[in-house]
């Protein structure tokens, strides 16, 4: 069976003043795929990811979400964001709410899910990310890895079709990276469509279905991980892979 196209980007351009950060980006994300965006700092991968959630406004080009072209003028962006969840590098948990309150906040206030049902679902999600015992504590009591897993549960609570990850492990102590990657891997195995900006090459190689390498605002090379990592075609890709630690 052919996979559905969840995201399709055509000719996307974005500038900050004179700085042209995204240049004619073409990309697609298929249903249940894990697409890893890799590349050096400043290559535009985070900006691209943020465009997919409309946290950044594109200058030109098309973004199609599940087959429909979406523009802030014609679509309710809040509705799109219910379908496209986001996990941030710095977690951004709501510090004045307990873990459970963080997770039920959007379902109860945006989707108007009854509170009892939201709590039940939130508890199931917390169990899934291994944090059942932390439901009633405040984020300030959690480690970085735990915070990020709560952030993942919070995003999942909206039952998104697509999850975006913006360097989800870059702000973590090295020994905490594993637990977050494990959670993400579990999600991938369950068939969640994911777009991950990451510097974790071993994760990209093992979990990714498709690798997109960006440099200076352009997609330089993309392909399935096996081919991409063992037989890169572009000079710039080879250079990047040589200097990257696995």
């Amino acid at each position: 069976m052919e996979q559905k196209e969840m995201i399709r980007i055509r000719n996307l351009n974005k500038s900050y003043g004179n700085l042209h950060v995204l240049k004619d980006i073409d990309m697609k994300v298929l249903d249940s795929d894990v697409v890893c965006l890799i590349g050096p700092s400043g290559s535009g991968k985070s900006t691209l990811l943020r465009c997919l959630n409309y946290l950044e406004k594109k200058d030109s080009g098309q973004i199609l979400i599940e087959g429909t072209e979406v523009n802030p003028g014609t679509h309710d962006i809040n509705k799109i964001r219910e379908k496209v969840g986001m996990v941030f590098q710095h977690f951004y948990l709501f510090p004045h709410m307990t873990v459970l309150e963080n997770v039920i906040e959007a379902p109860t206030h945006v989707k108007k899910v009854p509170k009892a049902q939201a709590i039940e679902e939130a508890k199931a999600l917390l169990a899934k990310v291994g944090l059942s015992d932390k439901a009633d504590v405040y984020p300030s009591k959690l480690s970085g890895g735990q915070k990020q897993r709560v952030a993942i549960a919070r995003a999942l609570a909206m039952k998104p079709d697509i999850l975006l990850f913006d360097e989800p492990t870059s702000a973590l102590d090295p020994e905490l990276v594993g637990e977050v990657l494990a959670t993400m891997k579990e999600l991938a195995l369950e068939g969640m469509t994911m777009v991950v900006v990451t510097h974790e090459m071993s994760f990209a190689r093992e979990v990714g279905d498709w690798i997109v390498f960006m440099h200076n605002g352009r997609v330089v090379e993309s392909g399935p991980p096996k081919e991409f990592f063992t037989n890169p075609k572009e000079e710039r890709t080879k250079e990047f892979l040589q200097t990257t630690v696995f």
Binding site: N53, L55, N78, K79, R81, E82, G85, M86, F88, Y92, L93, F94, E105, A106, H109, V110, K111, R154, A155, M158
Partner: peptide
């Protein structure tokens, strides 16, 4: 951004 990304 976190709030907005959740559809709020």
């Amino acid at each position: 951004e976190a709030g907005r990304s959740l559809g709020m």
